[in-house]
Structures are given as structure tokens and as C-alpha cells.
Design a protein around this nucleic acid. Sequence first.
RNA 1: UCCGGGAUCGUCUAAUGGUAGGACGGCGGACUUUGGAUCCGCUAAUGAAGGUUCGAGCCCUUCUCCCGGAACCA
Length: 566
Amino acid sequence: MNDANDNLADSKPGRFVDEIVLEDLARDTFGRPLLTRFPPEPNGYLHIGHAKSICLNFGVAALHPDGRCNLRFDDTNPAAEDEEFVEAIQEDVRWLGFQWNGEVKFASDYFEQLYEWAEKLIREGKAYVDSQSLEQIRENRGNFYKPGIPSPDRDRSVEENLDLFRRMRAGEFEEGQYVLRAKIDMQSKDLKLRDPVMYRIRKVPHHRTGDEWCIYPMYDWAHGQSDAIEGITHSICTLEFQNHRGLYEWFLEALGIEKPPKQIEFARLNLTYTVLSKRKLQQLVEGGHVSGWDDPRMPTLAGMRRRGVPPAAIRNFCDRIGVSRKDGVVDVGLLEHEIREELNRTAPRRMAVLRPLRVVIENFPEGEALEVEVQNNPERPEEGTRKLLFTREVFIERDDFMEVPMKKWFRLSPGAEVRLRGACIIRCNEVVKDASGEIVELRCTWDEQSKGGAPADGRKIKGTLHWVSAAHAVDAEVRLYDRLFHSENPAGEENFLEHLNPESLEVIEGAKLEPSLGELAVGEVVQFERLGYFARDRESTADGRPVFNRTITLKDSWAKIAKSGA
RNA sequence: UCCGGGAUCGUCUAAUGGUAGGACGGCGGACUUUGGAUCCGCUAAUGAAGGUUCGAGCCCUUCUCCCGGAACCA
């Protein structure tokens, strides 16, 4: 290090948005405090892609003392939206660790103001009621290479427009009969400026305004104006809205809004082995490919929460990937890394055997128990220790025994010695099989001088296994989750559903847990030593067994050795 | 053929005219009562061609490739 700044500039990726904000604040572009907003449409559950936007919007605001971020529901399409999502979204934002400015906002709160502004534009000759059909409007809009053709209604009088628009609101017309359009420029190279639709008639009750309205504003008409009403300074959205910026600015200008909000676009998140489009996620749910929006395999915040992913891991991930205008695909391994990193710091260690193999310690007295003390988290000694009972019969992982060991195999095999974590050293003397040749039990002896796991003579014991006392074990169901897709880019496949990973869920019925896990609270995450991180699920099986979801495995360097050796 | 964006290690991202750096991954090693963690090392990039400059990833020109745009969705 030849420069202390090297450490400061360090590893945190930049956010170009921060620089824009800094500049605007320096020259007081807006004459009001920094205000961003997170504007979900309440028509689905939030996912990891939304988390990027949330972290950005709230994060930018948090960088400045007067900075705030609103939560505003963009609820302008009653046909798609539902109260169910309004609740869920708020819960997800809070869970992620953010607090919005004041009350929750709704675009529907501004319907009246929007309506008045629309009349104002009509009076100024900047909007008109069009009676063309949807098809005609589309046809007359032209295309990338062909200019549009003005609607026959384009020069309707202000009086007639006002009358028609008021009657639209009053419900005198059928859906599709009329729309209100902004009168801009049918020749514009920016197709969004070819007289965009502002209002359509929809005789559908709205989740908040009920039957009060039968005309609803389009996104472009509602969004920028909602920003203006709230005093938003920086309206941060994803790249696909770049094409809307001209229109966003046109409306604000036409209304004479002073110091209008500034729209800034960034690249939305894409993740390998993951789909993030609302429609595809919905297909997964409705097609029964997952158990619901909060299935632990879903990239939804609800799913990740249930899986055991800590919110801090998601926040750190969002910091890590940075924010730019370049669309790319983030390796899901980076998310997994952040999850492991966070959980390694915070998750208490426990022992659990997924696929039990009975081990009988022949020289250990029947009916007796040896009390051993193990650390709750070697990473954080301050979290103390707990007591475990070691007995004559214990379970170890079937995967930890190999009758004919491979090279570099440090675990148990006939004649070999291993340590049972925190307890003692055992040697395998005999393999007991059933009639079909399957191994049913191991007969072992223990080294009485190795209580706690340390050999009295200091000999090296390379393998350490986790174990559970057979007499004290709690039975559990454990759900092992893996990536939902085996295609790196499922969204890019002809039919993404054909690329579902058939092994994304494996249910283990007969897992054996150390006793303390029987009482773990729902949602708590622990490390099953040597296996991975597991969260207690809200579902329990009929017989009252606890259910655990695997959040993520530990890194498994043995898997690599075994693979290369094979 | 139009308009708007974007191109830096395999991936994400810094460097804002002055030594192309970090993270993830991969590879190798040390250590280890989790084959975990930790630590160390290595690997690997400026889309192309010209130009300006003492000096270009950065500025200019041309080209190439990628993404978005022709909803009464957001």
C-alpha cells in the first residue's frame, strides 16, 4: 500500500447515481431536500431484483442527512392489482431493513389531482379525446421508420373534449370507446411522443378507490406527476424506461412544474440460473412447479426469507454488485457467497445427521452417558458452549463412511480412526450388513483417553465427524434445496419450464437432530456442522416433527477432490 | 432503414488525460477438533481501426457487436 486512499477507495463498487445526486445537491438543483422513491406495482411479490432497487433508492437517500425515500404503490391498473400485495410488499421492505418516509403513498391518492391536470391540458389544447379503436390508434402511430398519421379527432374543440372527458369520467361510455390522448407530435422519432394515451376507460373496481373511478391514468401520465406531487428529486428506474424519459419530461413541462424531478435509469438485476420476471414467477406458482410465492426456491424476498437468507446478506450483495447503466448477468454464486459470509458470522453451530448410520461403541457402557461441552460458534467464542450427551449408540452420516476408502479419504473406514466432534476418537472394527448387503451398523470402539476429542498421545486425527446420540436424537424432516433451474439463463430458453432442475428439492424424512434443535424458533437459522445452514420452517409434519429448510450448503472442497479423483 | 442506451479479467465493478485495481470464481499453498472458516500466492480484461497528446480505458472520427423502443401494462 503506497497510498492510504487505496484502502478507502477499497472494494466497494461505485454507484453513478450517487455522483449525480452529489452534484445536484452541491448546486441546489431542486431547492428541496433529496427525496427518492421506491414505486412497486401491487401486482406481485417483491424479488431480489426489487431488492437492488430498494437498496439503491433507500441507500442513496441515507447518504445524506435530509435524504428520504418514499414507498409509493403505482396502482393505476385495477385489473392487475390487489390489496394482498400491498401488505406483502410493505412487510418485505421492512424485513429488508428499510424505513420509508412518512406514510405509505399511493398513486391512486392522486387520481383527482391527475384528473384536474388532465382538464388543464385539454383547456390548453394539449390533450384530446380520441374515438379511434385500439387497432386504429396502433396502426396510425406508424413505426420506427414510418411517421404517424393524426387522428381524425385530433382537432376536436376544447369544449367538446372537455365534455367528452367529463362524460368518460361519469361512466357514460363503454370501455374502449374513447381515450384521452396527449397532443404532442405524430411525426416524432420518439414513438412515445406520438400522442400517447393518458386515460382509458376501465369499469373495474380499484383495490383502494372502489367504484369511484371508471377512467384510469396510464403509467406515463401518472408516474412523473406523482413524483412531482411528492416532491421527488431523483426518480430512479430501470433501463427499459429510458424510452419514456422524453415523455416524462414533456408532461412535467406542459404542466409548468418548477424544478421537476429528474429521471435516472440503471440496469436491472439479472441472475444466473434464475428467472426474475413477474410473469415467469407467476407461471411457476400457478403451474405448481413451486409451492407458492414463498417457496424457498423462489427468488422472491418471501421465499428467501423462508429459506433462511438473512436480509443483511441481500443488502451486502446489492452493495457488492454496484449500480451501472450496463445490463449484465450477475453470477448467482456471488449471492451465495454473501449468504455464506453472513451466516458464517451469525449462525450458531449445531449437529444434525441427515442420513443416519448407526454406530455402536462396544466398549462404552450400556445405559451411561458422557457429558461433553461444545462451542456454539467457534467464530464467536463469546457465544459460549452447550452440553451434549454422548452414549453407546450414536448416528453418523452415511456419507462419512466408506467401506473401501478412496485416496485422501480422512473419514471413517474399516480399521480407521476419526474424531467425533467434541466427544472422542473412535475406531471402526466391524461393518454389519443385512441380507441384501446394505450396511446397517458399524461396530466401533472408543479411545477413553480422548474425551473431548483430543488424543492423549497427541497423534494426528485428520477426520472429524458430526454425530448425534441415538438415545437423545430428535427426528426431523429436512428439505434440501438446490437451484431451481439447471440452465444458466432460463429466461433465454425457448421454454424455461423445460429447464427446471428436477432435483431442486429433496425431502429427507428421517434426519436426526441434537436435542436443542427441537426447540428452535421458526425462522431461526443454524449451521448443521459440516453440512450447511438450515432454517426452521413454519410447517411441521403431521406427527409434530420439526421441519428444516437448507438455506445453503457449506463449501465442499471434498466434492472437488472426489470428482477429480474419480 | 429510425430513435434511445451500453461495451474493462469467465462474472460484477473501479480507474473521470498519468502504474488498469477490487470482489466472486478458478488454480496452488499454509493452518484447522467443521475437508467449514481464516491466511497467503497465482490466474485473468480496456470490442476494432484511425486521430489528438509527452502520455488515451478515458477526448475526436469511423466501424462492429449487444440491449431497449412501434401496450388502452408497469
